[in-house]
Design a protein around this nucleic acid. Sequence first.
DNA 1: AAGGACAGCAACCGCCCTGAT
DNA 2: TATCAGGGCGGTTGCTGTCCT
Length: 306
Amino acid sequence: MGRQPCCDKVGVKKGPWTPEEDLILVSYIQQHGPGNWRAVPTKTGLLRCSKSCRLRWANYLRPGIRRGNFTENEEKMIIHLQALLGNRWAAIASYLPERTDNDIKNYWNTHLKKKLKKLQGNESSSRYGFPSSSSSYQICRGQWERKLQTDIHMAKKDLSDALSPEKSSDLVEMKPFNDHTSYPKPSGYASSTENIAKLLKGWMRNNPWKMADSADYSEGTVPMKEDKNSKEMAEAFQSHLGFESLDSSLSDISPSMSPEASLSQYESKPHLNAQSQLSLLEKWLFDEGKDYQLCDITLDQNLHFF
DNA sequence: AAGGACAGCAACCGCCCTGAT
DNA sequence: TATCAGGGCGGTTGCTGTCCT
């Protein structure tokens, strides 16, 4: 028995989102909060699959998202977390504030894979805390990697055990940054509107209200028939959100959003629960001063906490 | 300047999990 | 207990921009 598609594919628009669609989606979510994605296309008039709406929100429009320019520290974290967790991008993303799993996945596939390949081929690099010039380091790193390889499997198993409800119930509350139940609420809608603001700024720069000339923007995905309407809508949105003073004006949860909605906008990611058991790992990962002195932490110490 | 190759990334696809009924 | 819908997730695709010849 085949699974039903998430939505009726007929008449569903695909491809890149237009600014108008983004505005509509953000406006809707601002009013109703994220969730109940199936209702979004029908209630907004967007000719998009519900999944597409959720993805667009989660990966692009959601509050607190930072895009591009991964820092070296973020790279290190991704590399080490990937070694420990595998391609569990959502779990990895939960440790990286402001990054989406999709972003991390793309970054891994396009940048870090190559970098690591290079590093493997060229052991002389010390960029990731592997000071090659030291022979003792070579031994140390080798030992560490061997141990890591052989024990990752066990660690994963233990981790999944630790994640089971009966065990996680007595864990200390210490969650990854992106766990949206404990996410340091940035500023209600501010970050999201920042995204939209940037989007619109660029859009307005490039589209002096001539979208109707563009086939892309006139495909009928948005119930706006005139440039004027688009402009008015954007202006209203801009006015409402206040491009230039987003952080201050929206430093609290948007009043127009219900409490449930306010809370639920942080819901989009799962989290790991075995945080106390990962505490040393986290300390290790987040302690910038250490510069990932891998050899200072034995694998036994690490795995002890799984 | 043209066009082919390549890289980066947004978005889609389909499987899986979970909660509701 | 079985079934279903909604949502999450990882893998993959394909579009677009940039670089190279």
